[in-house]
Structure formats: structure tokens, C-alpha cells
């Protein structure tokens, strides 16, 4: 499939996905399963990565701001801004593209090659709507919570550096993370993450849905889903940053 055909196929698939589900009861059950699978099960990795990155950012920020002309709270300020503006939205979504994206592409791809999607179609079920819509909506729903948790845990990681090492004092760090706070940056991070969540789930579903052949092709579909959704996330990041900031 050339790139134009692929883009066309993606939009046609989204046309099939965004329709009213046949059965609301079945949809809500699928949706709640996906909230748990895509959202809650991503929580441990979000917490671990955010905690460590928060701590590492604080140490790096301190090294780069060792200048008597800069106020001592600059380290905390830099940590907060990096977390709010880039890490807890873009970098987190790039990481989740690996976890959630590969999971979705391999699940749907396996269903394709084992004829489970054909079975749904033969039963008269809109397979794209039944399989993909709950995944997209569930991940988009969970994403703001994951972003906020990531920011909070990242800030805790930075606080840990102050509390357990002599890199920075806790007082300076706390002053820094509260200094000149702009609440819009949280919304900026959340808006970006919502778009990225849609990109991850829809592109991964697309690659899984059109997988064919055997296990090898499902593996390729999964890899393509992660690599290409990551690239699209970076383009979208650039565009949204230009538009929103």
C-alpha cells in the first residue's frame, strides 16, 4: 500500500469506527474493560518513569544552573516546566506508544489473522466500531489522569532529590516549583496528550486491523504501529506547540 492509499484507508477505517454502537450495553462493557487495560494497567510504568525522570531532571537542572547570578529556586522551576510542557505529555505518550500501541496492534492483528474479525463481520457486527472505538475512547478518557499523575509523581521525584541528597535544599525546590506558575501549561499538556492518545490508539488499531499473513506480519504491524505513531506524535507536538503556546 503506498502512502496515499494508506492514509485513505486510515480515514475510511475511522469512518467505520466512529458510528453509534449497535448495543450500548456491549459497548460500555468493552469500554470499561479498556479503561482498565489501557489506562489502569499503564499506571505502574507511568509512576516509575515519572518518579525517576523527575529526580534526574532536578539533578541535571541543578548542574546546568550552577551560576551565582541565577536564583537558587531555578532548579525547581526548570524541573516543573520541563515536566509540564514536555515530559508528562509528549515523552510519556512516546513511551505509552510502545506499551499501549504494540498491545493494541498485536491484539487486533492476531484477531485478523485468526479470522476472528471475519467472524464478527459475518455475524453482522461492525468489527471496526466494536473493537476500536472502546479502545480509542478509553485511552483518551484515561490520558488526562495519567498526565496529571505523571506531573505530580515527577515533582515528587524532584523533591526526593532535595530530601535525600545534598544537590538542592527542599525549601529551594519547593519555592522553584511554585514560582511564576502558569496553570495554562497544565491544560497545554493535557490537550497535547489527548491528541497523542488518539494518534496512538487509532494508528495502532489501523496497523493491526490491516495485518495479514501470520505471526511475523503481526509482529511487523506492531513495530510499524509504534514507530509510525511516534513519528506522527512528534509532528503533532510541533504543530500543537506552535498553535497553543
Amino acid at each position: 500500500m503506498n502512502i496515499l492509499a494508506r492514509i485513505g484507508a486510515y480515514f475510511l477505517l475511522m469512518g467505520k469506527v466512529f458510528r453509534l454502537p449497535d448495543r450500548q450495553r456491549t459497548f460500555w462493557r468493552q469500554y470499561s474493560n479498556e479503561l482498565e487495560k489501557q489506562g489502569l494497567q499503564s499506571l505502574p510504568i507511568v509512576v516509575i518513569i515519572s518518579l525517576f525522570i523527575g529526580a534526574i531532571l532536578t539533578i541535571q537542572a541543578k548542574i546546568n544552573t550552577e551560576n551565582p547570578l541565577l536564583p537558587t529556586y531555578t532548579t525547581g522551576l526548570l524541573t516543573r516546566e520541563t515536566l509540564l510542557l514536555e515530559f508528562s505529555s509528549t515523552i510519556l505518550c512516546l513511551i505509552l506508544a510502545g506499551k499501549v500501541g504494540s498491545n493494541i496492534a498485536s491484539e487486533i492483528g492476531t484477531m485478523r489473522i485468526t479470522e476472528q474479525i471475519d467472524a464478527l463481520e459475518i455475524m453482522g457486527v461492525n468489527s471496526a466500531n466494536y473493537l476500536i472505538l472502546p479502545k480509542i475512547l478509553a485511552f483518551v478518557t484515561m490520558m488526562p489522569f495519567l498526565v496529571i499523575i505523571s506531573i505530580a509523581i515527577g515533582l515528587v521525584g524532584g523533591w526526593g532529590v532535595g530530601a535525600f541528597t545534598d544537590v538542592i535544599t527542599v525549601a529551594d525546590y519547593l519555592t522553584g516549583i511554585q514560582y511564576a506558575f502558569n496553570p495554562y501549561f497544565i491544560w497545554y499538556g493535557i490537550i497535547k496528550a489527548l491528541v497523542f492518545a488518539f494518534i496512538i490508539t487509532s494508528m495502532s488499531s489501523f496497523y493491526g486491523y490491516y495485518a495479514y499473513g501470520g505471526a511475523l506480519e503481526v509482529g511487523k504491524a506492531s513495530t510499524n504501529a509504534v514507530v509510525r505513531s511516534s513519528i506522527v506524535i512528534l509532528f503533532a507536538d510541533l504543530l500543537l506547540t506552535k498553535l497553543l503556546l
Binding site: 485468526t114 479470522e115 471475519d118 467472524a119 459475518i122
Partner: peptide, 12 residues
């Protein structure tokens, strides 16, 4: 329609 697929196609 009812369909029996070659590989059964039961939902995993």
C-alpha cells in the same frame, strides 16, 4: 448467516 471458520475463529 452462521459461519464455521477453518481455524474455528473463537474469540480468545
Amino acid at each position: 448467516m452462521g459461519m464455521l471458520f477453518q481455524g474455528s475463529a473463537l474469540f480468545d
